[in-house]
């Protein structure tokens, strides 16, 4: 690892200025569970590392009349254990599926939402892939068992966060702080596909940071669930995951929202499946139709066709479990 300058920002406002000063080349470091690994592998060789843990004002969980506010550097474990957060549908349970207890102790909510992809070509210093400014996606003709079946184009990463799909179905938004102030953006609009820009996963400008996540009170009025399928139960990213929220009356779903992890370069809004299911009485037949509609245009690579079946099955299971809540 290269030697670097370790910068302690005074407050959150100073962070965008520091980032601007170093032209966005300084590395943000909060829990470090992702950043440290990238530094060790040599994917990032920063001259400056900004210690976000020093910004204590970003570590909080607070509820107000509008909803739940969670600071970006709040450790994931605190969200799991928070009595208040536990009242926001499947949020806490989704956070609990992240990695392992050790990593949840260190990892932060902001870090989880802004983490870089796990694609082994991206993570390896041997491959100068398109996401690192190269020309090709090595997954296309390489080992692509874990890659995207939806939304891929020049790059086939899958977005790894467990928390993002759940938050999106709960209509959460993120507060983005830049040098000129802050703005709120629906989390759904935060992530971008490779066709927009294959070198980044979200809309953050080089001198912007996420400071807060806001979950509206409406999350308490719906049922929601996050279902994660791991190849290895002990510790794994999602092979495929499904987050669902809806108002349930009998076997009927309304206000349905579905977001999926592990299938696309962004948390994937299953809008076609929603069209089939929303407002209708759920049956096995309808669930099958919903899955087929959503995966109709899936483009599996050589080794990940199984994800189509897996996604359909998990979608069916997630809705089934939601109805049983």
């Amino acid at each position: 690892m290269k030697e670097f300058q370790y910068i302690y920002p005074k407050n959150s406002q100073s962070v965008p200025l520091i980032l601007g000063e170093y032209n966005g080349k300084a590395l943000l470091y909060a829990g470090g569970t992702d950043a440290l690994a990238r530094m060790k592998e040599g994917i990032n060789r920063p001259e400056q590392v900004v210690n976000l843990k020093a910004v204590e004002e970003l570590n909080y969980i607070k509820e107000d009349s509008d909803g739940l506010n969670i600071g970006a550097t709040t450790p994931l474990v605190d969200i799991v254990n928070s009595k208040v957060a536990q009242t926001y549908g499947g949020l806490s349970r989704a956070v609990e599926t992240v990695a392992t207890i050790q990593l949840r102790n260190m990892g932060t909510l902001g870090g989880n939402l802004c983490q870089r992809p796990r694609c082994w070509y991206f993570r390896s210093r041997h491959f100068h892939c398109i996401r690192k400014g190269g020309d090709v996606c090595f997954a296309v003709s390489g080992n692509n068992k874990y890659h995207a079946i939806l939304g891929g184009s020049s790059c086939y990463i899958v977005y790894p966060s467990d928390v993002a799909p759940m938050l999106i179905t709960l209509q959460a938004s993120v507060e983005i702080l830049g040098p000129k102030g802050s703005r709120m953006v629906p989390l759904e609009d935060f992530y971008i596909l490779p066709k927009v820009d294959p070198t980044r996963e979200n809309i953050l400008q080089p001198d912007e940071i996420v400071t807060r996540v806001f979950v509206p009170k409406s999350a308490k009025q719906v049922k929601s669930i996050y279902l994660k399928f791991r190849e290895r139960d002990s510790f794994d990213f999602a092979m495929v995951s499904v987050a669902v929220s809806a108002k349930v009356s009998g076997n009927k779903l309304s206000d349905l929202k579905i977001a999926m992890g592990g299938v696309a370069p962004v948390p994937w809004r299953a809008k076609k499946a929603k069209m089939v299911l929303n407002g209708n009485t759920v049956s096995d037949e309808l669930l099958k139709k919903a899955g087929e509609a959503e995966l109709e245009n899936a483009e599996p690579l050589e080794q990940n066709e199984y994800k189509i079946t897996l996604t359909k099955n998990l979608l069916k299971r997630a809705v089934g479990e939601l109805l049983a809540l």
Binding site: W120, R123, S124, H126, F138, G142, N143, D233, S234, D236
Partner: peptide, 25 residues
């Protein structure tokens, strides 16, 4: 142990992607 056919590189030369059983297994 995977080997990338185009480059001869092992893409899963780490304990995240080369999976071994853990406590839950």
């Amino acid at each position: 142990r995977l080997l990338d056919a185009d480059t001869g590189i092992m893409p899963n030369a780490d304990m995240e992607n080369y999976k071994i059983p853990g406590a839950l297994e």
